[in-house]
């Protein structure tokens, strides 16, 4: 059943995102407060499998979570339904995944 699967995926990805988002925010504060330069940040992330895994997981969870929520919001607030909405939000998910993974690759490879 599609609706039950999407419900499960959205809840599971949300649970995954809670610690990931918190860690991401702490990381931003650390980088800004510590005054790390772009070169210093890249020096730490390039070739580091753990950073690639952390942000790879982050991007995947976002690409699952956001389109499912967007699909629900559009259904309720605009009345857009059916296959066209499913395909559009699937495309949005693919876009998030593509852009996100591209960024992960750019700072880790």
């Amino acid at each position: 059943m599609l609706e039950a699967r999407l419900y499960l995926l959205q809840r599971a990805s949300a649970m995954l995102l809670v610690p990931l988002v918190l860690a991401h925010l702490v990381m931003i504060l650390y980088a800004i407060e510590g005054g790390l330069s772009a070169a210093e940040i890249l020096g730490r992330t390039r070739g580091n499998f753990l950073w690639a895994a952390f942000y790879g997981l982050f991007v995947t969870a976002v690409a699952l979570h956001a389109p499912i929520g967007l699909r629900n919001i559009l259904r309720e607030w605009t009345g857009w339904r059916g296959r066209s909405l499913d395909l559009a939000t699937l495309g949005f998910g693919a876009l998030l995944l593509g852009l996100g993974l591209r960024a992960v690759l750019a700072v880790t490879v």
Binding site: M1, L2, E3, A4, L6, Y7, N72
Partner: peptide, 12 residues
């Protein structure tokens, strides 16, 4: 359970 899991079912 299938009936309440369709679009517009309990998950909404």
């Amino acid at each position: 359970l299938q009936a309440v899991s369709q679009g517009g079912g309990c998950h909404s």
